[in-house]
C-alpha cells in the first residue's frame, strides 16, 4: 500500500516572548497508509495537534519532511488541499451564522454545490437543526458541525483531531461507524483521540507519541501482541494448590485472592489437562491479552499510581530516533520496552 502521509524528523519549537521556547515536536516520524484508519495517540501536550497543524500548513516546522500523497508539503499543499478534509482541535465557527450558512460559505469557497451541504448535514445528524445559530448549539452539535465541515469536500484523506470531544454515546458510535464506512470506501482516516477503547475498535494502525517523539507505531494487533506475554487467568476450586502444581513446571505464576495468573503459556489446553490429572476442574481460563489502554499507559509512562499526581509533561521521553530511519513498514518500538501488567 502507498503511504498517504509520511512524516520524518519533524521538529517544532514554539517561541513566545513571555514563556520562552517550548519544544513541541522533536524528530517525530509517522506513516499513514492509504485506506486505513490510523489512530494518533499521546498524552496531553505530547504534540498531536501540532503535528496535524504542521501537516495542514497552519504551523511552520523548524525541520523535517512532510509528504502528503507523495508530494512535499507545505510547498505542494495548495494542489493537495482539495483532497484533505480536516478538523483541528474543536474548530470555532462564527456564532451568529446558522450551521447551514457556515457550511454553505465553505462550500462556496471551495466551489462545491449547495446540495453537498445538505448531504453532510444529514450525515452528521444535524439536518433538523441546520438553521439554528451556531451559538445555540450544544458542544456535541458544534463538534458534529465541525465533522460536517471536514466531510464537505468528500476528501480522500480525513484528519480528525479529537472528533469524539463532547459527543454523546450515540454520537460516538455514529462517529465510529462513519469512520469505518469511509475507510471501507477507500478514504484514509487519521484520527487523534484519548478514547482508547474506541481507537482499538476502529483503527487498523496506531502511532503513539510522547513529548514530541514517536514511542510506537504499527498495526493495532502487532502493537498489542508485542505486549502479549501469553498470560492466562485461571479459576479453579483450590486455586492455591493448583498454582503450586503449575509453578512446578517452571512457568511464572502469580496467585491472587480467588484465582491465579500464569504466563508464557503457548497452549492453554495444557493447563486443563495438567490440573485435571490432579482432580482439579478448571472453572475459568481466560487469555489476558493487553488492551490498548494498558499498553498506552505503560509506553507513555503515565500509569496512575496511588498518591502520585501526574503532571502533563511527566510522560516518557523516548530516545531520539536514529537517522536515517530503518524499515518503515516494520513495527517500530522506540521506547525501552517496559513491563505490561494487565
Amino acid at each position: 500500500m502507498a503511504a498517504v502521509i509520511e512524516i520524518s524528523g519533524l521538529r517544532k519549537t514554539y517561541r513566545s516572548m513571555r514563556r520562552g521556547v517550548r519544544l513541541a515536536l522533536d524528530g517525530f516520524d509517522m506513516a499513514v497508509e492509504a485506506g486505513e484508519v490510523h489512530g494518533f495517540l499521546g498524552p496531553n501536550g505530547s504534540g498531536k495537534t501540532t503535528t496535524l497543524r504542521t501537516l495542514l500548513g497552519l504551523v511552520r516546522p523548524d525541520a523535517g519532511q512532510l509528504v502528503l500523497f507523495g508530494r512535499e508539503v507545505p510547498t505542494a499543499l495548495p494542489q493537495m488541499i482539495d483532497r484533505v478534509g480536516a478538523i483541528v482541535e474543536s474548530p470555532q465557527f462564527f456564532a451568529n451564522f446558522s450551521g447551514r450558512r457556515t457550511l454553505r460559505l465553505l462550500a462556496t469557497t471551495g466551489g462545491l454545490p449547495d446540495a453537498r451541504v445538505d448531504e453532510v448535514l444529514e450525515q452528521v445528524g444535524l439536518r433538523d437543526r441546520a438553521d439554528d445559530r451556531v451559538k445555540a448549539y450544544s458542544l456535541g452539535m458544534k463538534q458534529r458541525l465541525a465533522v460536517a465541515s471536514a466531510l464537505l469536500k468528500a476528501p480522500e484523506l480525513l484528519i480528525l483531531d479529537e472528533p469524539a470531544n463532547g459527543l454523546d454515546p450515540a454520537g460516538i458510535r455514529e462517529m465510529r461507524d462513519l469512520m469505518r464506512g469511509l475507510a471501507d470506501s477507500g478514504v484514509t482516516v487519521l484520527v487523534s483521540s484519548h478514547i482508547l477503547a474506541e481507537i482499538e475498535l476502529i483503527c487498523d494502525a496506531v502511532t503513539i507519541i510522547s513529548r514530541g517523539r514517536r514511542v510506537v507505531a504499527g498495526p493495532v494487533a502487532d502493537v498489542l501482541s508485542r505486549f502479549d506475554k501469553g498470560e492466562f487467568r485461571v479459576r479453579v476450586f483450590d486455586h492455591v494448590r493448583a498454582a503450586g502444581i503449575i509453578a512446578e513446571s517452571g512457568l511464572p505464576v502469580t496467585v491472587h485472592d480467588d484465582h491465579f495468573v500464569v504466563g508464557d503459556l503457548a497452549d492453554p489446553a495444557w493447563i486443563t489437562e495438567t490440573l485435571a490429572a490432579h482432580q482439579l476442574w478448571v472453572a475459568e481460563l481466560t487469555p489476558l491479552t493487553p488492551d490498548l489502554e494498558s499498553v498506552f499507559l505503560q509506553l507513555t509512562g503515565t500509569v496512575p499510581e496511588p498518591g502520585k499526581r501526574h503532571q502533563v509533561d511527566d510522560s516518557v521521553l523516548p530516545p531520539a530516533p536514529r537517522r536515517p530511519d530503518a524499515d518503515e513498514n516494520e513495527l517500530t518500538v522506540t521506547a525501552a520496552e517496559p513491563e505490561v501488567t494487565p
Binding site: L58, L77, I81, V84, V88, Q92, F93, L106
Partner: peptide, 12 residues
C-alpha cells in the same frame, strides 16, 4: 474566532 484557520484549511 478561528474563522481564518478554517478558511486556510480550504485555501492554504
Amino acid at each position: 474566532s478561528g474563522g481564518m484557520t478554517n478558511l486556510l484549511l480550504w485555501r492554504p
